[in-house]
Design a protein around this nucleic acid. Structure first.
Length: 986
RNA sequence: GCGGGCGUGGUGAAAUUGGUAGACACGCUAGACUUAGGAUCUAGUACUUCGCGGUAUGGGGGUUCGAGUCCCUCCGCCCGCACCA
């Protein structure tokens, strides 16, 4: 009875599906529920390329953990779905005319097939797809909740906009500053006197989902707005057309109002420090002051934000962002040309360029001056691209003695530097440390930085020219896309004022979802609008008798809309009246374990945190953080293979017909010897070339050539036709038509060796390994265990198919504990010995511990050790092998199920109970102590664990080997750590 | 430039709390069984040395009876980013 994995896996796959083994039930009303556990994977975007072996890494880890928790008695929610809206499907549609719904469906089917091959325990009846109307209905509904709410800073929570209207009617907006317009101020009477349109314009500046203006990349030639990704080197990726910045009305989520809360509640999350740090940096809280500098000889002021108000006496110039609104009005006539030229130059530069050329100092002088608030000194105003319009006030006070970039700028443009740090500033480098005292600064002289900051702010406030200010890097999230394949907004415009469809009081029009209409083509609408703008009879609607006309919003929502709340839908996926029933969300609560890559560190993970907080504040769910524990899996990199080929170019007389020469490939190990100029190899190569009709003289002069003078080329070869490093020569000949007549110079063992290099796994690098192929050859159980065995789950590591043999051998060896090739089933009911029980219970202990710390690679090692030990004990006893089958189930579910049924059970092993270890079998009575002399381990001595220290010390000193190392000296000290080691210090 | 992470055999790695560095595998080398081996089994495999031993966790320094692990410093690699005032 052999381990026939493909038969076993086919059989149980069908059994699990037919019997709905992985179906998860919500507790019935009134029922005392089992404890719950929610294990979630970041759902994939179903791309056309399908899965490669790197994708399932996290899915396998989460599946193992979910199965483990299930065996431990939890009701485990472990769902999967698809993030199905997105740009690639639309681009594909533009090229081929196929509807994104069709290609998406096709891709999902392919993904599903691949996932099913690996034996995941997903409850597919809970599958969600973000592009389905029954799902995006609720994405639209949540958008409306954000639209109809605002952030109450005093209560620190989102509240319905109706509450705000009541406040305005009673007291105006005093005490409720407007986040979208800080100059906005009105009384209750004024509010009531405003027109509906004016009122709604004011409310828009409070809403959590609001309209504003933002710059987008506009491509005139394509007639469309482009994503950052689609702009490469300042031109469009498609077609290479010029692009420019264009201001457009857009939807935003007011995530900045949640900034402080998003920052603070990170402390309570079980996420890696790296992940939390990334979010903290993205939110980017900084404390400082806003300072106003009056323009010299004119009206107006320049407002700056600074974290170092203590250095205010060191200000030597001001810098505005080139896009700053004041630039045009303050620039003097004689500087206008230079400023305009500089602005044009900045406009031509992409974000990437501006980032990668940090060291380059550029800028222009506006000709304008401001006055120092304390000294009245005239300070010149410059513009430069290193100041960003989007951060702070878009202007800085430059202190070259204390800031590196300001210092470089001053040196470059020859601006005199005021030193406010005394001897700490040397003149050739800014002193940016926050230690030391402030000098040359009037009333701040001699103060350490922190008190100088407070004193400076106090003085600024006192003089009425500054305020203490907290600034965040975080910007509101753009929520509009001028695209087709996304959720339509449940928004209509009346008289250019946006209304939620639920405000229309119309049985039909108020109904969600606003379905994505079919379109004939995916070309953009007029003036940068999305394709939906082309469908006139969809866009315009009549509101009925006497209520006029309206038009629909033609933007769609961005990719992260659907993924911001999908974890809630899994809890109650078929609910037709709510996004998820309260009973369901109260039961399942937060995701207990969320597994996914770090690429979502600041996008998806921040947005879904905000949505969860908003839904919580508005009373829809009872928790305000979505993901309690986050586990980031590392990337599986590709291991590319390269072959060396003799190049036939450039060395021949002009009339030589190069195409008559054979294609000669040379094994990597021979190439190495060639490069190190081994004479025997030179002969061998020349001989081979001659024999195959080549011209060997090309190698004759190598003594004069450098390494790169050897005419060798390196080209990629598909990793799937290489076994380890050995090229399958016949497969290579078939791989590409031009390879048919290739000649191979192999090594002494008649092997052709390739070179390997670790790179990102991608089609263009020919290093993609498809999980289907691995599963076919070794089985899903081997594949699952091997992915875990590769290393710690959170580390990046290269894929190497060769190593899978070891894990496959292990599973076969495990199988042989239960079944013999000749004798068949060999499990006996004999009582287990103490030695066997010890192996079992130590294994249970180790695996359980590893599981809790997600150390799956060491679990696999432990299983290997266990099987090795049981094999040498010749153990075929049910008392040992039955619990072992349960232990292995999370890792190798198919084999576990087969063994479980062969052991006589009729129900699935999934429903078994996880074995518990007994302490008495896991503790040893004695310990082989390493005995060290001066910290160097010299001998091993065995002692009972409960032996008295004095007895042990005496025995150690009496030991012959110890005495030899002590060389007759007296011990100064003996360190004894119970259960660990003994160290004799002499 | 800023932020985060990582450096251990030929390779993937282990060492969970400062306590025998290299578990478990891959690969490699022998051997057994076999018609055969991409099956199975046995032994060996960090470097160095005939051996006793010595040397090794990117380099240098420190704390400690004891450091892969803690501290300082330098070097290298990877990832993220919005030059963040």
């Amino acid at each position: 009875m052999e381990y026939n994995f493909s038969e076993i896996e086919q059989h149980w796959k069908k059994y699990w599906t037919d019997n709905h083994v992985y179906k998860v039930e919500n507790p019935a009303p009134g029922q005392t529920p089992k404890p719950k556990f929610y294990v979630l994977d970041m759902f994939p975007y179903p791309s056309g390329a399908g899965l490669h072996v790197g994708h399932p890494l996290g899915y396998i880890a989460s599946d193992i953990y979910a199965r483990y928790k299930r065996l431990c008695g939890y009701n485990v929610l472990h769902p999967m779905g698809f993030d199905a809206f997105g740009l690639p499907a639309e681009q594909y549609a533009l090229e081929t005319g196929q509807h994104p719904a069709v290609t998406t469906e096709k891709n999902i089917a392919r993904y599903r097939e691949q996932l099913d091959n690996i034996g995941f325990s997903y409850d597919w009846s809970r599958q969600v797809r973000t592009s389905e109307a029954s799902y995006y209905k609720w994405t639209q509904w949540i958008f409306l909740q954000l639209f109809h709410s605002w952030y109450d800073r005093s209560m620190d929570k989102a509240r319905p906009i109706a509450d705000l209207v009541k406040i305005f009617e009673l007291t105006g907006n005093a005490g409720y500053p407007c986040p979208g317009d800080d100059t906005c101020s009105f009384t209750a009477e004024q509010w009531k006197a405003y027109s509906e349109k004016d009122q709604r314009n004011i409310l828009m500046n409070y809403r959590n989902a609001y309209q504003g203006y933002a710059q987008v990349w506009w491509c005139e030639a394509l007639g469309t707005v482009l994503a950052n990704d689609e702009v490469v080197n300042g031109v469009s990726e498609r077609g290479g057309h010029p692009v420019e910045r264009k201001n457009m009305r857009q939807w935003f989520l007011r995530i900045t109002e949640f900034a402080e809360r998003l920052l603070n509640s990170l402390d309570n999350l079980d996420w890696s420090e790296a992940m939390k740090e990334m979010q903290r940096n993205w939110i980017g809280k900084s404390n400082g002051a806003e300072v106003s500098f009056k323009l010299a000889g004119g009206e107006g002021e320049v407002l700056v934000f600074t974290t170092r108000p203590d250095t205010i006496f060191g200000v030597d110039f001001m810098v505005l962002a080139p896009e700053h609104e004041l630039v045009d009005s303050i620039t003097t006539a004689d500087q206008k040309q230079k400023v305009d030229e500089y602005k044009a130059y900045v406009k031509s530069r992409s974000e990437r360029e501006r980032m990668s050329e940090v060291k380059q100092v550029t800028g222009a002088f506006t000709g304008a001056y401001v006055l120092h608030p304390f000294t009245g000194k005239k300070i010149p105003v410059w513009i430069s691209e290193y100041v960003l319009a989007g951060y702070g006030t878009g202007a800085i006070m430059a202190v070259p003695s204390g800031d590196d970039r300001d210092h470089a700028f001053a040196k470059h443009f020859d601006i005199a530097i005021t030193n406010v740090f005394g001897d700490a500033y040397t003149g050739d480098k800014a002193y940016s440390s926050k230690t030391g005292t402030i000098e040359n600064s009037d009333f701040l002289n001699g103060m350490p930085v922190s008190s100088a900051i407070d004193a400076a702010i106090a003085a600024l406030v006192n003089a009425g020219v500054g305020t203490k200010k907290v600034n965040y890097r975080l910007r509101d999230a753009g929520f509009s896309r001028q695209r087709y394949w996304g959720e339509p907004f449940p928004i209509v415009y009346k008289d250019d004022v946006p209304y939620g469809t639920d405000e229309l009081n119309d049985a039909t029009l108020s109904q969600l979802p606003v379905e994505l209409p079919m379109v004939e083509h995916y070309k953009p609408g007029p003036e940068g609008q999305g394709p939906l703008a082309n469908i006139e009879d969809w866009v315009s609607l009549s509101l009925g008798e006497g209520r006029g006309e309206a038009t629909r919003e033609t933007n769609t929502m961005p990719g992260y809309a659907g993924s911001s709340w999908y974890f809630l839908r899994y809890m109650d996926p078929h609910n037709g009246t709510e996004f998820a029933g309260r009973a369901a969300t109260d039961y399942w609560q937060q995701v207990d374990l969320y597994v996914g890559g770090t690429e979502h560190a600041v996008g998806h993970l921040l947005y879904s945190r905000m949505w969860t907080k908003a839904l919580h504040d508005l009373g829809y769910i009872s928790f305000d953080e979505p993901f309690r524990k986050l586990l980031n899996q590392g990337m599986i990199q590709g291991s590319s293979r390269f072959v060396y080929k003799l190049m036939n170019g450039g060395i021949f007389p002009g009339d030589f017909d190069v195409s008559s020469l054979p294609d000669i490939y040379i094994s990597k190990d021979i190439v190495d010897k060639l490069i190190s100029r081994e004479p025997s190899v030179k002969e061998k190569v020349e001989h081979f070339i001659k024999e195959n009709g080549g011209v060997y003289s090309i190698l004759m002069d190598w003594e004069k050539e450098k390494y790169d003078g050897i005419p060798l080329g390196r080209s990629r070869v598909d990793v799937n036709i290489v076994n380890g490093l050995e090229l399958d020569v016949n497969a290579f000949k078939k791989w590409r038509a031009e390879n048919v007549n290739a000649k191979f110079l192999c090594n002494e063992d008649d092997r052709f060796v390739c070179e390997a290099e670790v790179e990102k796994m991608s089609k263009s690098k020919y290093n993609v390994v498809n999980p289907d192929d691995i599963v076919k050859e070794y089985g899903a159980d081997t594949f699952r265990m091997y992915e875990m065995f590769l290393g710690p789950i959170d580390m990046s590591k290269p894929w190497d198919t060769k190593g899978i043999e070891g894990v496959h051998r292990f599973l076969k060896k495990l199988w042989r504990l239960y079944a013999d090739e000749q004798k068949g089933w060999i499990v006996t009911d004999e009582a287990a010995t103490d030695a066997e029980l010890k192996v079992l219970h130590k294994t249970i202990k180790k695996i359980s511990e590893d599981m809790e710390r997600f150390s799956f690679n060491t679990s696999v090692s432990q299983f290997m050790i266990t099987v090795n030990e049981l094999s040498s004990l010749n153990c075929h006893k049910r008392a040992i092998l039955e619990p072992l089958a349960i232990l292995i189930c999370p890792f190798a579910p198919h084999m576990a199920e087969e063994l479980w049924h062969k052991l006589g059970h009729t129900d699935s092993v999934v429903k078994a109970a996880y074995p518990q270890y007994e302490e008495k079998y896991t503790v040893d009575n004695t310990k082989n102590y390493p005995v060290a002399i001066n910290g160097k381990a010299r001998v091993e001595m065995e002692f009972a664990l409960d032996a008295a220290q004095a007895d042990i010390e005496a025995a150690v000193l009496a030991n012959e080997a110890v005495q030899k190392w002590m060389e007759g000296k007296q011990p100064k000290k003996i360190i004894f750590v119970k259960g660990k080691m003994i160290n004799v210090v002499i």
